[in-house]
Design a protein around this nucleic acid. Sequence first.
DNA 1: ATAGTTGCAAAAGTTTTGCATTGTA
DNA 2: TACAATGCAAAACTTTTGCAACTAT
Lengths: 142, 142
Amino acid sequence: METQSTPPHRLAALARLRDAKLRPTKQRLALAKLLFEPGDHHVTAEILFEQAQAAGVKVSLATVYNTLHQFTTAGLLREVVVNSACTYFDTNITGHHHFFFEDSGELIDIDGANVDIRGLPKAPDGARISRVDVIIRLSGQE
Amino acid sequence: METQSTPPHRLAALARLRDAKLRPTKQRLALAKLLFEPGDHHVTAEILFEQAQAAGVKVSLATVYNTLHQFTTAGLLREVVVNSACTYFDTNITGHHHFFFEDSGELIDIDGANVDIRGLPKAPDGARISRVDVIIRLSGQE
DNA sequence: ATAGTTGCAAAAGTTTTGCATTGTA
DNA sequence: TACAATGCAAAACTTTTGCAACTAT
């Protein structure tokens, strides 16, 4: 019953689903492969849906949304809010931050290990910090 | 033609509109008063719309949206993205950060002057930093 | 066999748009 | 008077939901 110490980054799609206690259905497996095999990256539901179609996977957009949220709830993905127009999901679930290119919508990870934030007030009484997000917004290159 | 050194926080609604070169129409003035007279706070389009109605101002939701964006473009407001469900606008346009209560949707400002972030990589070549946002997400108090 | 999933279409929610009307300068 | 802004409703989008059909265990 012990989880091996294999870092989650290297677990195959099937093993990840098993670990998350999610039934390895055809669609979940296919989406998990698209999400986790290429290494860390960011997707929107729309993008993942297109990738699935391009890969010949039969899946509906609604199922992509549902699956992304199931994966997020299971801790396999992280939601990144940078843009009210659409939701990004990040396959990198370690503590880290983001560059966000406002022009293209592209996201780039910033390793959280080297970032040190000082001078923040403590959380208001009774509240617990669930996450600290740093987003560096980048705009056009002139 | 010189702008006085009055901090923008204290300019009356009418003066703000004049400064921003926005015609002081009835609706803009009314919304500007609701936005800028109470001091720093955060609104959504929906909330501002309700406040306007409560104040007896005749304005449509579409105009509230349009006006919020005009004010933002003019630099009178700042958009705060914390939540893909809806867009917040902040009347505090100085550099600062936010606590975000995930449960209630409430935002609280964190003065940016005392916050020091170290260890961030420099912006990718050719990109310019338009803003650094720090969002501290707070969840339920147990 | 059965309980959990999927697909689809339709609903829900926020935000934007188009155009006739109105109001400011 | 001219031109910009408004109001409204409808459109556009993203995201969620409900339920019959399906599928992994």
